[in-house]
Nucleic acid binder design. Sequence first.
DNA 1: ACCTGAACACCGTTCAAGT
DNA 2: ACCTGAACACCGTTCAAGT
Lengths: 223, 223
Amino acid sequence: MASRAQRTSRRANALSKERIVEAAIEILDTDGESALTFRALAARLSTGAGALYWHVANKDDLLAATTDDVITRVMTDVVAGARPRETIRAVALGVFDVIDAHPWVGAHLSRQPGQSAMLRIFEGVGGQLQALGVPERAQFDAASALVNYILGVAGQNAANARQDLNGMDRSAFLATVTAQWTQLGPEEYPFVHRVAAQLREHDDREQFLAGIDLILAGIGTLR
Amino acid sequence: MASRAQRTSRRANALSKERIVEAAIEILDTDGESALTFRALAARLSTGAGALYWHVANKDDLLAATTDDVITRVMTDVVAGARPRETIRAVALGVFDVIDAHPWVGAHLSRQPGQSAMLRIFEGVGGQLQALGVPERAQFDAASALVNYILGVAGQNAANARQDLNGMDRSAFLATVTAQWTQLGPEEYPFVHRVAAQLREHDDREQFLAGIDLILAGIGTLR
DNA sequence: ACCTGAACACCGTTCAAGT
DNA sequence: ACCTGAACACCGTTCAAGT
C-alpha cells in the first residue's frame, strides 16, 4: 500500500520527455533561446543535468521535440473544413502566428530537415493541391514552393525577434531599419531606397499572406 | 630603410579583417560550421585568439562578414544585361549555386536581418519588378515573397548539407528519406506518401527554379 | 596601434556512483 | 530503471602585458 502510494506520488513528478519538453518551451518563451541550457532546464525541474539525457538524446533532439510539439498543436487546430485555398491560407497563417508567439520555432524549423514538424506543414498545404486542380506532376514543386516560402518567413521572423530583445519596440525598430534603407542611396540600391517608406507602414502578417496569395496565383496558372 | 622593409614585410602578413574572413571561409568550406572557432582560426593565422577581436567585433560579426563576402561576389557576377525575368532567375540561381558550394551561407543568411547580403538579393530581384510591369504598391510584397522563398530554400539546403556529413551520398540520402516518407502511411499523410516517389528523382536546382517561376507567374497576374 | 596568451565564465555531454 | 552531480573537453570573450 505504502509502496503503491509512494510510487504514485513519485510518478506524479517523475521526469518524462513530455515534462522536459514542456519546461524547455517555458524557458524558450520567457527567456529566449540562449537561456535554454541543460543546467537551467535541470534546475527548473529540480534534477541533475545528466538525468535529462535519460529521456532526451541530446540538445538537437530536445529542440526538435519542442518544435514538433508546438507545430503539431497548431496543425491539429487547423481543421480542413474549408475550401482548399482557404485551408492552405489557414495552415500558413497558423504557422505564422505560432512563430509570432514562439519566435524560436522559426529558427529550428529550418534546421532539421525531414523533421515531422515540417512534414506536417508539407502535408497540410500539399494535400489541398489535388482539389485545387493542380496537375499531379506539378504538385510536388508547388507544395515545396509554399513550404519553402513559409520556412523563409519563419526564419526571418525568428531573426527579427532575436534583435528586438536589444531594447526597442517594433515601431522604433522599423524606424531604424527604414532609416538604414533610406541612407543606402539610390545609386547602388535604387529599389531598396524607393521601397523604404513602405517598410515602416507594412504589416508582417499581411505581407506574409500577400506572398501566399502570390504563390497561389502562380499555382492557379498551372491548371 | 631597414625599418621600411621591415614594416612592409610585417604588413604583408599582418592581420586584417579581409585575411580573417578569408581564412574563416576556408575553414567553413573544408571542415564545416562546427570547425570554425576562434582558436582554430587563430591557429591557422598563426596568432592568438584575442588578436582577432581587434579586427572583428565577435563571432556574429565574423559570420556576417563571411556571408557578405560570398554573396557580394555572386551578386556582382550577375550583371543585369538580360530581360527582367531572366535577371531575377539569374540572381536566384546565383544564390542557389553559391549555397550549394558553401552550405553554411544558407544558415547565416537567415540569421541577421537587414544584413547587407540580404539587401543585395532584395535589390537584385526588386529592381526588376518595375520593368516587369508590377504596380508600384505591389512591388514590396512581390520582392519580399521572392526573397523569403530564396531564404527558405537556402536554409533547407544548409540543413541538408549538415546531415549529409553523417556518411551517405546524395542518392543514399534521398533513398532513406523516400523510405521514411513512404512509411508514413496514407491515412495520416496521404500527400507525403503519394509524392514520395517523386522525391527520389527530383533535382533540387530544378525544383528551386520551378518555385521561382511559380512566384513569377503569380506576379504576372498582378499586371 | 596591434598582438599575445592566460584566465574567466560558461557550454553540452559523459559516467561512476547511488536508489 | 532512473537519477545525481562531479568531471571532461570544449567554447566565446576579456584583458593585463607586451612590442
